[in-house]
Design a protein around this nucleic acid. Structure first.
Lengths: 163, 163
DNA sequence: ACTGATATAGTCAAAGATAGTCAGAAAGCG
DNA sequence: CGCTTTCTGACTATCTTTGACTATATCAGT
């Protein structure tokens, strides 16, 4: 398994217990995993970004720390943010997958729905010879349109999952 | 026998055993067959495409992999019919909507899932300035990829869907 | 307060590890 | 032959890991 994945799991285990946030020492964690301290920053940047639903707070110097906080937001707030601000006119597959995964974790969609959405914006779905630029524009439109549908379903069904 | 055929057989042997999916390293497989790594991509593209009933997932970088998911047996009638005959390389919104409606009526998808699929192939999702021809090609690919995903879900969830 | 030492964390570019793409060569076939 | 399929290699894209350098905070001595 990748080092990054191990560190990610470790942090998520800490978060899973009860607290919605966890505080740690960058150097201690790096020591524990036997890696460069900057590796921790890499994991935070690629797995605990706002897109992943986390906010990072930190302090340097003596007694310094890194705090990882899981963001809490209502479903419609999240959806509106994604549609109106986060997703612009263009988005890559990786980013889109992250956002969809986040919706799943917040239980705004079922895993089947998330998989269908992933399929819709996948490279396989867009494997026709057009420029990447266009593909990403299609991805953005498609994703936003699907999210609008989810938002409407959410309103009509009071935010509960369907079955 | 052709190299491509050998690689195809090899992968199908792996898939035949018990697991419906297999994960491999492109370079290792190429090494094993003594060929260029890109040969593996050729085999995947020509023998494990969505039209053949497979989903490919992959990751680059350290710890990268290629995962091949078999969704339908070769020759499985209904799904292959939908994927290859009815959808083809291109499909309009109206016809796609009718097809999705049928999936709903046959209870292969929930109404929420059907709505998300409709959103994904809607005119709104594709409201960027590209030729209709391209839009319909994208629709076809997108729909096929989503269909495969649904088929995979039904299989994995003990679904009683059989063509 | 100021200053320098110490203790942290952050940034960024480079190297390493994979996989993807595509044009053209090679091989097979009618 | 001429067309199609297969195969390769060079180039590209993406993901991970590290290390050198930077930035900031605390503390101890003055």
């Amino acid at each position: 398994m990748r080092l990054s994945d191990s560190i990610e799991s470790f942090i998520k285990t800490l978060l899973a217990q009860d607290e919605p946030e966890v505080e740690l020492k960058r150097n201690e964690l790096a020591e524990y995993f036997g890696c460069a301290p900057s590796q921790i920053n890499y994991v935070l940047a690629t797995r605990f970004s706002p897109d992943h639903g986390y906010i990072i707070e930190s302090r340097r110097g003596g007694g310094g720390y890194i705090r990882i906080v899981r963001v809490v937001q209502t479903g419609s707030q999240r959806l509106m943010y994604l549609i109106n601000e986060r997703i612009g006119d263009t988005i890559g597959e990786g980013e889109a997958v992250r956002l969809i995964q986040q919706l799943l974790e917040q239980q705004l969609v079922t895993s089947n729905e998330a998989e269908i959405m992933r399929a819709a914006i996948s490279a396989q779905a867009l494997s026709i010879p057009i420029p990447d630029q266009i593909k990403n524009a299609v991805r953005a439109r498609t994703l936003k349109t699907m999210l609008l549908t989810v938002a409407r379903q959410n309103r009509e069904q009071g935010g509960a999952n369907n079955g």
